[in-house]
Nucleic acid binder design. Structure first.
Lengths: 221, 221
DNA sequence: TCATATATTTACGTATACATTATAAAATTA
DNA sequence: TAATTTTATAATGTATACGTAAATATATGA
């Protein structure tokens, strides 16, 4: 029945999920004891989990005000997207310079196909999942573990906002072409081109997201 | 008598300093109780500090083998330098696009002067300090707080290796020209140029460092 | 002697008790 | 009544106790 995970690790993953899914609302405050009771454990592992979550930028621990779930302003989103843009583009470049075989691109190919299918079925939820998979796969192919960590960290932080705007934006048909072109450049070993293509793709995505957030008045997501 | 800092925060900063200065040798293992005794506090705050240090990538917590101070291989250094290259170059670009006044460049100017003086006096220690100050100032001018966090994190990790190679490398005279040119481009609002110049500067620095590490057989710093 | 099983030790994970300190409440005074 | 001081409350920070599980040492048998 037990899975060997420590309570701290459990608290960490459960809390992260609650935050990312917005079930612990952004901007809300929570006491250690409250979370401990919710999770059915003592304060100690909860406290340890919150310290890690703070280091990862998801929450802020304010001594007498509880744990605050951080919300993201358009400026925050802009910061994060700028970082992801650079690091993913670098990953594309690095990936193109590695000598990969066809088999290594299977997951990325698959992700693109899933996006096609999801678009055809107007299933934006699935599209978003596949889109994140593609980006994460790109980062994996770049073979820089620290970039992968940063990517995961910020993807978590940004998921709330992306979900919020998913149905407000035009159908991301161009995205799919972009992905295909980036992957082709990587396959062909054209590092500079892969980098430039992906960078343009990301810059466009940022523009769309920020404009939507401001247009719809989401000043703190 | 007390300074208001919690024991956890104290443990965090003391441990970080010990690690960065290599007084806790990279690759070495330490028990919670050992560190607690060394710091004159109970295991609890030490444990909390180690969780944060682990999240920051300085150590690895291995259940029955103690806390391991992570060492850096050339591959690790390469990963970190690649990330810093991208994010600093972006910062240069962003800084050039901000409307700064002369006063905002004082610290950066000062850092450059310090580097000149240090070079003239053959004081490489001081040069390294001023060099890091310039880069950190560049990041600050970029006005992306998350990049600043990442920069601090990886600068800490890399300091050991930089110190080690400081006296092995040729005098960094060209560095100073580079810095001046980057700052001028930022001042003139030439974003693309600032980016490209700084990128080239960073790529060169990476090349020098990695070659030195491999040449001298520092496979785990 | 070597392999396997058993016992012991020890470090960690967690709960809990307690000290500390910031906030809120109450009381006092102008 | 409003401001200020005092008291009380409550949440955090820290130490400690203890159960658990992993690693080591010991013992047993082939």
């Amino acid at each position: 029945m037990s899975k060997g995970k420590s309570n701290t690790q459990q608290a960490l993953s459960v809390l992260k999920e609650l935050i990312v899914d917005n079930r612990l609302a952004s901007g809300s405050n929570h006491l250690e004891s409250e979370l401990a009771e919710m999770l059915g454990m003592s304060r100690t592992p909860v406290r340890e989990a919150t310290l890690i979550l703070e280091a990862q930028g998801l929450i802020e621990v304010k001594p007498r005000h509880g744990i605050r779930i951080l919300s993201l302003s358009p400026k925050d989103m802009s910061e994060i997207y700028d970082i992801l843009t650079e690091l993913e583009s670098l990953s594309a470049e690095l990936a193109a310079n590695m000598k990969y075989s066809e088999a290594d691109f299977l997951v990325a190919e698959n992700a693109i196909e899933k996006m096609d299918k999801a678009l055809a079925e107007d299933d934006l939820e699935s599209w978003a999942v596949a889109d994140e998979l593609f980006h994460s796969e790109l980062v994996r192919l770049g073979n820089n573990g620290r970039i992968a960590n940063i990517f995961t960290m910020y993807s978590d932080q940004v998921r709330r906002a992306r979900k919020l705007t998913l149905n407000l934006r035009p159908k991301p048909t161009k995205s799919n072409d972009d992905h295909r072109n980036v992957l082709k450049a990587i396959r062909d070993g054209k590092a500079g081109e892969a980098r430039i293509l992906h960078r343009a793709h990301r810059i466009q995505a940022k523009k769309v997201l920020i404009e939507l957030l401001e247009q719809y008045g989401f000043h703190n997501v």
